Simulated assay, not measured.
Amino acid sequence: MPFKKLLMAAVAVLATTAHAARPMNTDDARIVDAKSCQLESWVKHPRGHTEFWAQPACNFTGNLELTMGGSLTRQDGSTRGSAQMLQGKTLFKPLETNGWGWGLAMGMARDPRRDAGGGHDMYAYVPASFSLLNDKVVLHTNVGWLREQGTRSNHLTWGLGSETQLQERTWLIAETYGQGSGKPLVQVGLRYWLVPDRVQIDATYGNRIGEGSQRWFSVGLRLLSLPFLP
Protein backbone atom coordinates (compact mmCIF):
# COMPACT_ATOMS: atom_id res chain seq x y z
CA MET A 1 0.00 0.00 0.00
CA PRO A 2 1.46 3.43 -0.90
CA PHE A 3 2.61 5.52 2.07
CA LYS A 4 -0.07 8.15 1.50
CA LYS A 5 -2.90 5.60 1.58
CA LEU A 6 -1.37 3.87 4.60
CA LEU A 7 -1.16 7.19 6.44
CA MET A 8 -4.77 8.09 5.72
CA ALA A 9 -5.94 4.60 6.72
CA ALA A 10 -4.15 4.89 10.06
CA VAL A 11 -5.66 8.30 10.68
CA ALA A 12 -9.15 6.99 9.85
CA VAL A 13 -8.79 4.07 12.29
CA LEU A 14 -7.62 6.33 15.12
CA ALA A 15 -10.40 8.82 14.47
CA THR A 16 -13.12 6.19 14.64
CA THR A 17 -11.71 4.32 17.67
CA ALA A 18 -10.95 6.89 19.86
CA HIS A 19 4.65 22.17 15.09
CA ALA A 20 1.80 22.45 20.63
CA ALA A 21 -1.49 21.13 21.83
CA ARG A 22 -4.40 22.21 19.69
CA PRO A 23 -5.21 24.86 18.77
CA MET A 24 -1.79 26.53 19.18
CA ASN A 25 0.95 26.63 16.56
CA THR A 26 3.50 27.77 19.16
CA ASP A 27 4.62 24.50 20.74
CA ASP A 28 4.87 23.79 24.47
CA ALA A 29 7.40 22.00 26.66
CA ARG A 30 5.06 19.05 27.17
CA ILE A 31 4.67 15.65 25.53
CA VAL A 32 2.02 12.94 25.58
CA ASP A 33 2.09 10.80 28.73
CA ALA A 34 4.35 7.75 28.67
CA LYS A 35 2.85 4.72 26.87
CA SER A 36 -0.09 6.87 25.71
CA CYS A 37 -1.34 8.37 22.46
CA GLN A 38 -3.37 11.33 21.34
CA LEU A 39 -5.22 12.36 18.21
CA GLU A 40 -5.48 16.01 17.21
CA SER A 41 -7.91 16.70 14.37
CA TRP A 42 -9.29 19.96 13.05
CA VAL A 43 -10.91 21.76 10.15
CA LYS A 44 -9.26 24.99 9.00
CA HIS A 45 -10.99 27.37 6.62
CA PRO A 46 -8.68 29.92 5.01
CA ARG A 47 -10.03 32.04 2.19
CA GLY A 48 -10.73 29.96 -0.93
CA HIS A 49 -10.37 26.42 0.44
CA THR A 50 -10.90 24.13 3.43
CA GLU A 51 -8.27 21.93 5.11
CA PHE A 52 -9.03 18.73 7.07
CA TRP A 53 -6.15 17.77 9.40
CA ALA A 54 -5.36 14.76 11.59
CA GLN A 55 -2.18 14.25 13.63
CA PRO A 56 -1.89 11.13 15.81
CA ALA A 57 1.03 11.08 18.27
CA CYS A 58 2.36 8.45 20.69
CA ASN A 59 5.00 8.26 23.43
CA PHE A 60 6.48 4.75 23.33
CA THR A 61 9.60 5.28 25.47
CA GLY A 62 8.61 7.84 28.11
CA ASN A 63 10.48 10.85 26.70
CA LEU A 64 10.01 10.75 22.94
CA GLU A 65 6.76 11.84 21.34
CA LEU A 66 6.39 10.75 17.71
CA THR A 67 3.80 12.49 15.54
CA MET A 68 2.72 11.54 12.02
CA GLY A 69 -0.08 13.36 10.26
CA GLY A 70 -1.46 14.92 7.15
CA SER A 71 -4.30 16.84 5.59
CA LEU A 72 -6.85 16.82 2.82
CA THR A 73 -7.71 20.05 1.01
CA ARG A 74 -11.08 20.80 -0.56
CA GLN A 75 -11.06 23.49 -3.22
CA ASP A 76 -13.29 24.20 -6.25
CA GLY A 77 -15.49 21.22 -5.42
CA SER A 78 -12.69 18.63 -5.38
CA THR A 79 -10.75 17.01 -2.53
CA ARG A 80 -7.09 16.04 -2.70
CA GLY A 81 -4.22 15.04 -0.41
CA SER A 82 -2.21 18.08 0.55
CA ALA A 83 0.39 17.86 3.31
CA GLN A 84 2.19 15.22 5.34
CA MET A 85 4.44 15.59 8.36
CA LEU A 86 6.61 13.45 10.66
CA GLN A 87 8.07 14.81 13.91
CA GLY A 88 9.94 13.71 17.02
CA LYS A 89 9.95 15.71 20.27
CA THR A 90 11.79 15.21 23.56
CA LEU A 91 12.14 17.15 26.80
CA PHE A 92 15.35 18.10 28.59
CA LYS A 93 13.47 19.67 31.50
CA PRO A 94 9.76 18.85 31.94
CA LEU A 95 7.46 21.76 32.74
CA GLU A 96 6.52 22.00 36.43
CA THR A 97 3.89 24.08 38.23
CA ASN A 98 5.25 27.60 38.82
CA GLY A 99 8.41 26.51 37.04
CA TRP A 100 9.67 26.16 33.51
CA GLY A 101 10.66 23.51 31.01
CA TRP A 102 12.27 23.10 27.61
CA GLY A 103 12.92 20.53 24.91
CA LEU A 104 13.73 19.92 21.26
CA ALA A 105 11.55 19.03 18.26
CA MET A 106 12.74 17.99 14.80
CA GLY A 107 10.73 16.99 11.79
CA MET A 108 9.99 16.84 8.11
CA ALA A 109 6.96 18.20 6.27
CA ARG A 110 5.79 18.05 2.68
CA ASP A 111 3.17 20.11 0.86
CA PRO A 112 2.87 18.94 -2.78
CA ARG A 113 0.75 21.89 -3.91
CA ARG A 114 2.44 23.81 -6.72
CA ASP A 115 2.13 27.15 -4.92
CA ALA A 116 3.85 25.71 -1.84
CA GLY A 117 7.18 25.16 -3.60
CA GLY A 118 7.20 21.36 -3.37
CA GLY A 119 9.82 19.16 -1.72
CA HIS A 120 10.33 17.96 1.83
CA ASP A 121 10.98 20.80 4.28
CA MET A 122 13.21 20.05 7.27
CA TYR A 123 12.83 21.90 10.56
CA ALA A 124 13.92 22.00 14.19
CA TYR A 125 13.00 24.24 17.10
CA VAL A 126 13.38 24.64 20.85
CA PRO A 127 10.10 24.97 22.81
CA ALA A 128 10.26 26.59 26.27
CA SER A 129 7.30 27.03 28.62
CA PHE A 130 6.81 29.00 31.84
CA SER A 131 4.07 28.28 34.41
CA LEU A 132 2.58 31.14 36.45
CA LEU A 133 -0.13 31.38 39.13
CA ASN A 134 -0.28 27.63 39.78
CA ASP A 135 -0.66 26.81 36.06
CA LYS A 136 -3.51 29.27 35.52
CA VAL A 137 -1.28 31.13 33.05
CA VAL A 138 1.33 29.37 30.91
CA LEU A 139 3.62 31.16 28.46
CA HIS A 140 5.34 29.46 25.51
CA THR A 141 8.26 30.51 23.33
CA ASN A 142 9.73 28.81 20.24
CA VAL A 143 12.93 29.54 18.35
CA GLY A 144 13.88 27.37 15.39
CA TRP A 145 15.11 26.78 11.86
CA LEU A 146 13.30 25.83 8.65
CA ARG A 147 14.88 24.53 5.45
CA GLU A 148 12.54 24.93 2.46
CA GLN A 149 13.58 22.34 -0.09
CA GLY A 150 11.45 23.81 -2.87
CA THR A 151 13.31 27.11 -2.77
CA ARG A 152 16.50 25.79 -1.08
CA SER A 153 16.36 28.59 1.46
CA ASN A 154 16.78 28.70 5.26
CA HIS A 155 14.56 30.66 7.64
CA LEU A 156 14.51 31.56 11.31
CA THR A 157 11.20 30.57 12.91
CA TRP A 158 9.72 31.88 16.15
CA GLY A 159 6.57 31.86 18.24
CA LEU A 160 5.20 33.44 21.40
CA GLY A 161 1.96 32.21 22.94
CA SER A 162 -0.08 32.06 26.13
CA GLU A 163 -2.75 29.87 27.76
CA THR A 164 -4.98 31.54 30.37
CA GLN A 165 -7.54 29.65 32.43
CA LEU A 166 -10.93 31.40 32.40
CA GLN A 167 -12.96 28.71 34.16
CA GLU A 168 -12.27 25.20 35.42
CA ARG A 169 -12.49 23.67 31.92
CA THR A 170 -12.15 26.74 29.68
CA TRP A 171 -8.91 28.31 28.44
CA LEU A 172 -8.15 31.37 26.34
CA ILE A 173 -5.22 31.00 23.95
CA ALA A 174 -3.40 33.79 22.12
CA GLU A 175 -0.23 33.70 20.05
CA THR A 176 1.89 35.31 17.39
CA TYR A 177 4.41 33.46 15.22
CA GLY A 178 6.28 33.71 11.96
CA GLN A 179 9.43 33.04 9.99
CA GLY A 180 12.18 35.16 8.50
CA SER A 181 11.41 38.82 7.90
CA GLY A 182 7.79 38.32 6.80
CA LYS A 183 4.83 39.77 8.64
CA PRO A 184 3.86 37.64 11.67
CA LEU A 185 0.61 35.74 12.06
CA VAL A 186 -1.69 36.03 15.06
CA GLN A 187 -4.31 33.65 16.41
CA VAL A 188 -6.78 33.74 19.30
CA GLY A 189 -9.21 31.08 20.45
CA LEU A 190 -10.89 29.06 23.17
CA ARG A 191 -10.19 25.54 24.40
CA TYR A 192 -12.76 23.55 26.40
CA TRP A 193 -12.38 20.15 28.10
CA LEU A 194 -15.51 18.04 27.56
CA VAL A 195 -13.80 15.31 29.63
CA PRO A 196 -10.89 16.68 31.70
CA ASP A 197 -7.51 15.53 30.33
CA ARG A 198 -9.20 13.22 27.80
CA VAL A 199 -11.52 15.03 25.33
CA GLN A 200 -11.04 18.65 24.27
CA ILE A 201 -12.71 20.90 21.68
CA ASP A 202 -11.48 24.27 20.45
CA ALA A 203 -12.16 27.12 18.04
CA THR A 204 -9.85 29.86 16.73
CA TYR A 205 -9.61 32.90 14.49
CA GLY A 206 -6.31 33.94 12.88
CA ASN A 207 -4.82 36.35 10.40
CA ARG A 208 -1.53 37.78 9.16
CA ILE A 209 -0.86 41.22 10.61
CA GLY A 210 -1.67 43.86 8.00
CA GLU A 211 -3.11 41.33 5.51
CA GLY A 212 -6.83 40.87 6.02
CA SER A 213 -7.12 38.51 3.05
CA GLN A 214 -5.20 35.75 4.91
CA ARG A 215 -7.65 35.27 7.77
CA TRP A 216 -8.85 31.80 8.76
CA PHE A 217 -11.16 30.01 11.16
CA SER A 218 -10.64 26.57 12.70
CA VAL A 219 -12.47 24.10 14.93
CA GLY A 220 -10.77 21.10 16.45
CA LEU A 221 -11.08 17.93 18.52
CA ARG A 222 -8.33 16.43 20.67
CA LEU A 223 -8.48 12.92 22.15
CA LEU A 224 -5.99 11.61 24.74
CA SER A 225 -5.73 7.97 25.76
CA LEU A 226 -4.86 6.25 29.01
CA PRO A 227 -1.50 4.36 28.99
CA PHE A 228 -1.90 1.20 26.90
CA LEU A 229 1.31 0.73 24.87
CA PRO A 230 3.60 -2.19 25.79
Rank of each mutant, 00 (worst) to 15 (best):
M1D: 08
F3A: 12
K4T: 08
K5S: 05
K5E: 07
K5F: 03
A10L: 09
V11F: 06
A15P: 06
T16K: 14
T16E: 12
A21I: 00
R22W: 14
M24P: 03
D28Y: 00
D28T: 02
A29V: 03
A34Y: 05
E40I: 09
W42E: 07
K44T: 04
K44W: 05
H49K: 06
E51K: 00
W53L: 02
A54Q: 13
Q55K: 13
A57H: 07
C58W: 13
C58Y: 13
L64I: 01
L64K: 00
L66A: 02
T67S: 05
G70P: 05
L72S: 02
L72G: 02
L72T: 05
Q75F: 02
D76S: 04
G77E: 00
S78R: 10
S78C: 01
S82Q: 05
S82Y: 01
A83N: 05
A83D: 06
Q84A: 04
Q84S: 03
L86D: 02
L86I: 07
Q87H: 02
G88A: 07
G88I: 04
G88D: 05
G88F: 13
T90C: 01
F92R: 04
K93D: 10
P94Y: 08
L95K: 04
T97A: 10
T97V: 10
W100E: 01
G101L: 02
G103P: 09
L104G: 00
A105P: 01
M106L: 11
R110N: 08
D115S: 05
D121P: 07
Y123R: 11
Y123F: 09
A124P: 03
A124N: 02
V126S: 04
A128S: 14
A128E: 01
F130Y: 12
L132T: 11
N134E: 13
V138Y: 02
L139P: 06
H140K: 02
H140Q: 03
N142M: 07
V143A: 11
W145N: 15
W145I: 13
L146Y: 09
E148K: 15
G150W: 12
T151F: 15
T151Q: 14
R152K: 14
S153D: 10
H155S: 03
H155C: 00
L156W: 12
L156V: 12
T157Q: 10
G159S: 07
G161Y: 12
S162K: 08
E163Y: 12
E163M: 07
E168S: 15
T170D: 13
W171A: 15
E175K: 15
Y177V: 14
S181I: 01
S181P: 07
K183E: 11
L185W: 14
L185G: 12
Q187E: 15
V195D: 11
D197A: 12
D197C: 09
R198H: 10
D202N: 13
D202A: 11
A203R: 07
T204A: 09
I209Y: 07
G210T: 00
G212W: 09
G212H: 12
Q214N: 10
W216Q: 08
S218D: 11
G220N: 05
G220I: 08
R222I: 00
L224A: 11
P227S: 03
L229G: 06
L229V: 10
P230A: 04
P230T: 00
